[in-house]
């Protein structure tokens, strides 16, 4: 039986703040409030990656939040979509090029929908979520991987274990060189 059409009718959201100024977060809460009543579409702010379908990220990804971002992404069961909410989440915004932030979350995880705006309004957020739902419906259940801080899951006795596939900084995926602010490698990345 094909249940994929029900994905659209019950999108549960995980909201993660990767160093945002809280502007976008307030707008999200506004969108969830009775005024906009997102619940009529079955939307639920679950706060738990394991039971979520939509990963709603705000903030430009500070250094501290990188591992957590990848870990949360990794713990979400597929199919899942990622929404980058707000200018700094899409590109780094006003923080672009600063020593303590990455420029947007798509360096670390694949993003499906970008919602610009500083801060994005509730209407935009709802529109973005609706677009994300179309993408969600078409996705498969194949494993989706993060771009960095990631290693393939281990398999033993036919059991795949992805509990360690989101890495700690310094244990692979990143060279120590790369971690230094303004290192040549880092600047190179920026030009990509």
């Amino acid at each position: 039986m094909d249940f994929s059409r029900y994905r659209k009718r019950s999108p549960w959201i995980l909201h993660y703040n990767a160093g945002s100024c809280n502007g976008c977060d307030i707008e999200i809460l506004a969108a969830l409030s009775p005024r906009y009543d997102l619940e009529r579409f079955g939307v639920l702010n679950s706060g738990n990656p394991k039971q979520s379908d939509i990963f709603l990220v705000t903030g430009p990804v500070t250094y501290r939040s990188r591992e957590r971002l990848v870990e949360l992404y990794n713990q979400m069961p597929e199919p899942k979509v990622v929404i980058a909410l707000g200018s700094c989440t899409c590109t780094g915004g006003v923080f672009r090029g600063m020593y303590n932030v990455e420029d947007g979350i798509d360096r670390y995880i694949p993003v499906d929908v970008y919602i610009p705006g500083c801060a994005a309004s509730p209407e935009l957020i709802i529109d973005g979520v609706v677009q994300a739902l179309d993408i969600l419906e078409k996705k498969t259940k194949e494993r989706e991987n993060a771009k960095r801080l990631y290693s393939e899951p281990t398999t033993e006795n036919g059991i795949t274990d992805r509990s360690n596939s989101a890495q700690k900084i310094g244990t692979g995926g990143f060279s120590p060189e790369e971690m230094k602010p303004n290192s040549p490698e880092r600047r190179e990345n920026e030009e990509d």
Partner: peptide, 19 residues
């Protein structure tokens, strides 16, 4: 307005469809 009456079942079918 609130969700549709069958919302709990939609949730259930969606959960069946997860990895």
């Amino acid at each position: 307005k609130g969700p549709p009456l069958l919302q709990p079942f939609y949730d259930m079918f969606k959960l069946l469809d997860k990895r």
